[in-house]
Design a protein around this nucleic acid. Sequence first.
DNA 1: TGCCATACGTTATAGCATAACGCAACAAAC
DNA 2: GTTTGTTGCGTTATGCTATAACGTATGGCA
Lengths: 136, 136
Amino acid sequence: MMSPALTKNQSLVLDTLSRADQPISAYTILDRLRDHGFRAPLQVYRALEKLQEAGLVHRIESINAFVACAHRNSSCCGGPHQHGTVAFAICTECGHASEFHDHAIDHRLAIWAGERHFKPHKTTIEIRGLCETCAA
Amino acid sequence: MMSPALTKNQSLVLDTLSRADQPISAYTILDRLRDHGFRAPLQVYRALEKLQEAGLVHRIESINAFVACAHRNSSCCGGPHQHGTVAFAICTECGHASEFHDHAIDHRLAIWAGERHFKPHKTTIEIRGLCETCAA
DNA sequence: TGCCATACGTTATAGCATAACGCAACAAAC
DNA sequence: GTTTGTTGCGTTATGCTATAACGTATGGCA
């Protein structure tokens, strides 16, 4: 379970995501790292791929954006990165995304898959709508 | 709740999706309708937008593809298009997508949203993995 | 008839993602 | 210490996905 240390590019991308207050696109990351020598999209996408594998970054499919894992330093759900499916609630007004986990949902999905002998690899759960502030 | 009849373009797009045995991209739809006079992506996207509003077509976010609603002629879940959130299990090997619904999951998501005063607009649930046939 | 809403067709452009090439750094095997 | 394999890096080019902005056409209705 020992992961290699992050490379320079991977650290830069993760830092950029950590500093963002909402999910941002790969091209936004690229723009924010031009001063650090980034020139091409692949530099971003390659780093993102590794960070996702390490569970440090999540991709939000419905908006083509990326976000640092909100729990990468916590011990919830049995320890870092031991948790189940990641879910997001994304405000379409302010762009903020809340990450959460729900074991009951995981369980229901596991039951559905088990009954049909479907082997899940990656599950996406995303709610788009208005956060409390923006709905008011 | 009376929807206007589909336009010619909308019918062509829906027919194309109904004939496909798996989700297909907007550009694939475009290619399959060139013989019917389609020339530009917007002709497809505009039809897809209306079909989605009518609940006849679903977009699968994780693969940027579209599929005809599997239940558009059924009376499950209290009648046509009265059902809750649509979920998909997509086989990354053969491309097939199974549409399903789970009220328990809907309920859990509703609870999460309610506690945080989040107003859901559209919810995405997608499991990518291997179907029984492809996993064997 | 005039107005309005909706759909349509076209061109252009924006935004997201990967293929394919070669090079560099580093560690394990010999 | 050289070979070899793996991983990451940089660059160019390309492909796929989606929408902006314009004008036209159609049909309902006052």
